[in-house]
Every structure is written in structure tokens, then in C-alpha cells.
Design a protein around this nucleic acid. Structure first.
Lengths: 347, 347
DNA sequence: TTGTACGCGTTATCAT
DNA sequence: ATGATAACGCGTACAA
């Protein structure tokens, strides 16, 4: 059967196309009686408005892009997507997720992006854009909201986790537990795409200094530069090797993420080091796996981040004021079984 | 700056709109020289084709819907999405994910769905549709591909995991390990939305029978009916209580999913039952958490499922033959630390 | 409150 | 190979 158009409905209902349009969208003034007639006709013809045609006529696409810096099946991204969708979906928006993994793709993406009016807004999750990309973005009229992006300047609004707050809490915990030598363990960070994790490294150093740790007592251990992505276990092996060859072996470590923390715990135990008796470990994120691994960690809530981003998109789109345009989510320490007070004999 | 239209490009390049359209899409015959001219003009004007206008004119929306039965941040759904996106994205399609959690929503969704031509295809993941929904779906001209749906009849193509193969492998493993009394543990299954897990229950019973287990030696334990979703630990507590009050306590169990398995293992250990020495546990899915928990499980690969679904969508959309329209993915047993051969003294 | 008529930016058909 | 022009299906001033 050929799809019914608004004209068919108008004819069947005995009104004009304009009236059908108004009745079906429920915005403009239409007599209840007329509306009923129209709805009955639409129902009989199995008709709903075409999003495409509406978009073309109105200039609103009712679509928002979610651009992620990693795959959509990663814990963080999947949660942000769910959050964004939860608030934008019911409002009639489609959200089309997409992701970029390397710099080349990024360039291509942004070179294409701003030219065509294919979305009403864009939310950018977890990565840094270079000047070119920012310029392209700015040249669009699309409202932009950032999620967990270091420099929020090029966004109309942004929401992120407070990595500094988180790392400070982690370091303070370790100090409270009596650990005098601590370390931060992370992957190699290419400088062309800056992630949240690089902030964590910085934050660790600041927190250590502020809490009275000397340079020698707060080490940062990063993986060597590598082209392809290391498996977490290979990464952990490398990090633990570096850790164990330190002049003064730390008694506690903070890892860049839960994934890294868990792999490191495993590797440490394979080396017959007891966690937490010999060494305490703190992760970052509180992803599903953290609970299973009984890992002490810093919680961030990407689902709520996504919802908040969705709300900000809505405000931007509707011109309602966004009470704080820029927000950061407080981090929460989650105490589990991989941290313990340093035994007296070990101090 | 006002957005440039195809007319502006045509004027600047000194050709007709039609030629610009042809040149930019790269499909029809256009002289290389003309194409170059057009591309230069488009570039200068910062122009790309509007997806909306193209869609309206061509009837192709270049959009495919992904409809999931649970939230998008669930392991399975997130992976399917990633897979679908990986193959459809590079072909120029947007994929708009959406999800439905209860029956009411489902009805509303399908009542709206087929009427407007807002997507070129739909992929439906992980749930059963009732007759009404199927009819609505059929009344659309949209190609439909199913992912992990029990009855594939209403789809043009489908791909799923082979739950039967998986459960048979699990049961055979337990038999090989010498377990003579086994059980299946699962949540309460409302009958209005049938999930993959109900298949697993069936499969367990069949596999048990075929492998020589009596009725008394192969128990199925399900949670009591409940309105709200139980937390996994509450569920596990209930299941373990039922398990421990069985006349003949099994020495091995299969759980509906990894999540349930892990919660059950935890509960068992809290009851001072050793896993696997006292009781073996097998999960289902091989999600991230399974590895962390060192859980023996049946692997399914939703990422590959999604990719395959994406390929089928492409075939359907292009009219190329889909070599098998219906496929099922073999399940693979992953041996880890929660299963062990039944000690001789326990037999 | 309702109807008329034009425009949204492209594709597709038919000439040339 | 290229150009003119009619759809595509709806939103929206403006008029009634």
C-alpha cells in the first residue's frame, strides 16, 4: 500500500492540510471536534507525519548527534548514550551515536560536520578537539555540549566528572591509611587526543604534593609508547615490572581506570604480592567490573552525566536558561577490599 | 552565515543543480572536469548535501532503527549497537538506537512505528513481539532483521546465539566432570515478553534428559513472581535458599546469565560453600564481568551478532542475496575457575 | 479557528 | 554529459 500523505488525511477528514498538520502536532489552536475528526482519519489511513518532510519544512531535524571518543560498547560511552537517550528520546528526538578512534577520522569527521544541517545539536563525549575541529564546530549553528572534556571553552555547555576531586580523595585515603610511598599507574597517553586520564595523572601529582609526599614518595608510572593498543594484561605486566623495580617500592597505588587496576591486581598476585596486605590498589570509575573484583575505587556516574547532557541540550534548543552551563560531578570514594591500613610493621 | 544550498553551488560552478547533485554523489556520469569544478565550488561554500532534503526527494532515509529490549548501557545491547554501527556507519547510514522495557511502551511504539517512513530498516534485538506488533511491523515496507529473537518468522532475516547448543555444551561438561545432580537457576520470567533466557531453561531440561539425568537429578529453580526488578544479590539469595532446601542438593549449577551466576557464587561462598570444590557454577554470556570473576561460562558474541545484523540490513536494502537469511551463532564453552571435576568422595 | 499558497533543498525524469 | 522542471511531504505566513 502506498503510504498515505497529509493530503489524503485532509481529504478524508474534510479539512485542509494545514489543519491536519496543526491537529496532529497538537500545538496550534484547533477545535476539539476538528482534532477528533483528523485523528480518526489519520488513524484509518495509518498515517503519521514524516519526520523528513517536517524537518525540511521546519528546519528542525529533531536529531542530536552523540560523538564519542571510543567504541559504543565501552562502559562509559554506553552509559552516556543511555542517559542522553533517556531524556531526549521522550521529547521526540532521535539520538544518533557515532564514534571516532583516531586523529585522521576526527579530521575527516569535522571537515564534513558543520556544513549540512543534519542535526539540531551535538554532544561530544570524552575527548579533546584541536583548533581546526573547534573552528569547524563553531562555524556550525549547532548547540554543543561536552561530556568529560578538559577544555570546555568551545562548548555551549558542559558536564564532567571532577577528576581532581577524585584523585585528591584517593590520595587522602591512602595517607589516612598510613601509606607513605604511593604511585600512579597509567597507560601511555598520546598527546594528540587528550583523555580524562591525563587529568588524573596531573591530579595525582598535585594531590601528592599537597598531602606532603616528596617526589621520591609519589611515583608516576606510565607504559612505554606503543603503536597498537596493549591488552590490559600486557599493560599490567609492564607496569608491575616498572613498579617492582622502583628504588623504594610503594605500598599503595592508584590506577588510571578500574580496568587497569584489576589487571594490575591480578599481575601483582601472580607475583605473589598480596593485595591489599602487601600493597593497596585504588581504581577509577566504579564500572561493573569493579564491584565484581571487590576493588576500592572512585565512582563516576556516566549515566547521570548523559542525562545531564541531555537536559542541557534541551535547554539550549529551547532557549531556556541553563543553570550552570558548566558543571562537574563530584567524585565519590567507594571502599572495597583492595585497600587496607598499612600494618604497623611495614612502616 | 546562511547555509549554502545546491543552487548556490550550481551558480558558482556555472552548472545546473542537477549536475551538482550528480557530481557530489559520485553516482551518475559527470565529466571529471565538471566534477572538479563543482567540488571546488562546494568546498568554497562549505557545502554538503542535506540529508533531510535528499531523503525527502529520494525516499531513502539513510537511517536504520535499532530497537532493544533493555537499556542501551547493558552489555549485550551496547555490543549489538557497536556491531551494527560498525558496518552501517561507513556506508552512510545513521543508526538510531531505542529501547523498550515494558509491554505498554511496546504497544505504543509499534502503533506509531510503521506509519511514517522514518527509517529504511529496523533491527530488533532480544525480544518477542506479540501478534499485534508483528502485524504492525509487517504492514511496513521496512526490512526487518532480528537479533536473538526466538521466533524469527516475522523477520526478513535474523541472527542469534544458539542457546540450545550452549546449554547442551554446559550440561555435557557437567556430566563429563562427574556431576550427577545438576540445577538451572534463573529469574522469574514474565510470559508477556519472552527473552532468550526462557530458551535456556528449556534447553537445560532437554539437555539434561538427553544426557541421562532423571527429573530428580536436574532441577530448575526460578525466582518467585515479583513486580519490580530484583537486585542480583536479592535474586541470588532467593535462588540459593531454594537450592539449599532441595531434597538432593546438586553439585553443579547452570545460571541463566553471568550476572546471576556471579551473584550466586558470592551468595554460596557467604554460606560457606566452596566454589568449585563443593559446587560448580557455569554462567552464560561471557560478559566482561565473567573474566574478572573467573567464571566458567558459555560465550556469546553480541558484537559479531550486531555486525552480522548490519550486513544483513545492507543486503536487504540493496537487494543482494543474503546467504543464509537465518543464522545462529555457535556457542563456545569457556573454562575458568568455577567448575571442577567432582571429587571421588563426593559421588 | 481554518484555509491558501509558497517554500524547504534535494532527487529523478525527460529533454537536449 | 548536462539542463529544466516536476515531484517529495510537510510547516507556516498570511489571508479569510
Amino acid at each position: 500500500m502506498a503510504r498515505a500523505t497529509i493530503a489524503d488525511v485532509a481529504k478524508l477528514a474534510g479539512v485542509s492540510q494545514a489543519t491536519v498538520s496543526r491537529a496532529l502536532r497538537g500545538v496550534d489552536k484547533v477545535t476539539p471536534a476538528t482534532r477528533a475528526k483528523v485523528e480518526r482519519a489519520a488513524d484509518r489511513l495509518n498515517f503519521t507525519l514524516s519526520k523528513n518532510a517536517s524537518s525540511l519544512a521546519s528546519g528542525k531535524t529533531m536529531r542530536v548527534i552523540l560523538l564519542c571518543s571510543g567504541k559504543l560498547n565501552e562502559w562509559f560511552n554506553a552509559n552516556v548514550l543511555q542517559g542522553v537517550y533517556e531524556v531526549l528520546g521522550p521529547e521526540g528526538y532521535d539520538v544518533s551515536p557515532s564514534f571516532i578512534v583516531d586523529k585522521k577520522e576526527s579530521e575527516r569527521y569535522f571537515a564534513q560536520l558543520p556544513k549540512n544541517r543534519n542535526a539540531d545539536a551535538i554532544v561530544i563525549s570524552s575527548f579533546q578537539l584541536d583548533e581546526t575541529a573547534r573552528a569547524e564546530l563553531r562555524s556550525t549553528d549547532m548547540p554543543t555540549v561536552g561530556v568529560n572534556i578538559p577544555a570546555a571553552s568551545f562548548c555551549d555547555a558542559a558536564i564532567g566528572i571532577d577528576n581532581f576531586d577524585g584523585m585528591f580523595k584517593a590520595v587522602r585515603l591512602l595517607r589516612s591509611l598510613g601509606h607513605t610511598r604511593i604511585a600512579f599507574l597509567g597507560d601511555y597517553i598520546p598527546d594528540d587526543m587528550v583523555y580524562s586520564t591525563s587529568q588524573r595523572t596531573e591530579a595525582f601529582l598535585e594531590a601528592a604534593e599537597e598531602n606532603g609526599y616528596d617526589d621520591g614518595d609519589a611515583a608516576v608510572i606510565c607504559a612505554d609508547e606503543h603503536g597498537v593498543t596493549l591488552s590490559k594484561s600486557d599493560l599490567a605486566a609492564q607496569l608491575v615490572a616498572k613498579l617492582l623495580s622502583l628504588p623504594n617500592m610503594p605500598t599503595a597505588i592508584c590506577a588510571e581506570t578500574d580496568q587497569v587496576a584489576i589487571a594490575v591486581v591480578k599481575e601483582l598476585r601472580e607475583q605473589r604480592l598480596r593485595v591489599p596486605e602487601d600493597i593497596s590498589v585504588i581504581g577509577f570509575d566504579d564500572a561493573d567490573i569493579a564491584q565484581v573484583a571487590d576493588l576500592t575505587t572512585i565512582r563516576q556516574d556516566p549515566l547521570e552525566l548523559g542525562r545531564n547532557a541531555g537536559r542541557k541540550v534541551l535547554s539550549l534548543l529551547r532557549g531556556t536558561p541553563l543553570n550552570p552551563a558548566y558543571e562537574s560531578q563530584e567524585a565519590a570514594l567507594v571502599l572495597r577490599g583492595t585497600t587496607v591500613r598499612l600494618p604497623a610493621d611495614a612502616r
